[in-house]
Amino acid sequence: MSLAAPGAPTRDGPLRRLSDLFMRRPRLFLALLLTPPLLWLGVAYLGSLAALLAQSFFSIDEFSGLIVREFTLKTYGELLQPANFDIIVRTVVMAALVTLFGGVIAFPIAYFAARYARGRVKALFYLLIMLPLWSSYLVRVYAWKLILAKEGVITYIADHTGTRGLLDAWLSLPVVGGPSLSISYTGTFLVFLYLWLPFMILPIQASLERVPRSLIEAAGDLGADARKTFSTVIFPLALPGIVAGSIFTFALTLGDYITPQIVGSSTLFLGQAVYTQQGVAGNIPLAAAFSVVPIVIMGIYLTVAKRMGAFDAL
């Protein structure tokens, strides 16, 4: 192929010629750009997901413990056994509670950051919300093990403020109680709430930033008081942000298997079930079937969220 068009500046060297080729054929260049990342994600990631899906249709031979590589729905059937189904329900309820309370705690922070913080304070707010998001996950779980331990700081505070009776009463309750906070659902709940809070704050703040000032002023001019403005103008406009945040808190709670193992009672959550099945039990098909559950739940959740306009708030 001759590259030098008449009158064009002389182009020498293989690099220049290659560069010209790319200029004339942007599609070729695009293909070259996209091939390595797509190859990586396609093979390493999509390939793995396909392998996961395939394994969930296999079953395990109960006598030999070996994986039978034949198509069956038996493994999915096992999910409906009471013990396994309880795990799914328990995890979904926990995820829903964490999401609900996360929204309640996150909203004032997001509201303050979006409407009142300016300049340096705003930068500081952003940093304070973002730092925990990126800092060590395991260390943050561990911090709560220290705090919630029976001999730890919460018991100390309860002892010195005369609220020990209240703490013991809470711990003696069925379901939410336990021998100590670090061995109870309450503890697991608190840690999840703490871990995922930044994921809730950021989208809410983003959606609040986009509420036009003129709308709020218009509501005031039309006679709405602060409360009415909030409930009829600000909150509905912030709703997509809340839904977007809930996607994170919900998905992250569904898939976590570390937190309930470090802080929590001995009953399993979904992630732990996956982990134990693939590890100790060596039952990769059941582990795979278990891990399809959060994918399906999140698929439904995302479809609903999309209808509510949550993706525009991301």
Binding site: L41, Y257, P294, I295
Partner: peptide, 28 residues
Amino acid sequence: AVSLLITLPIALPGIVTGIALRAALNLA
């Protein structure tokens, strides 16, 4: 679709990525 593929590894719970890789290593 490409944009979705790039974000998928962090959009799905980490355990899904983990077990998927584990399943692939096991199969291969």
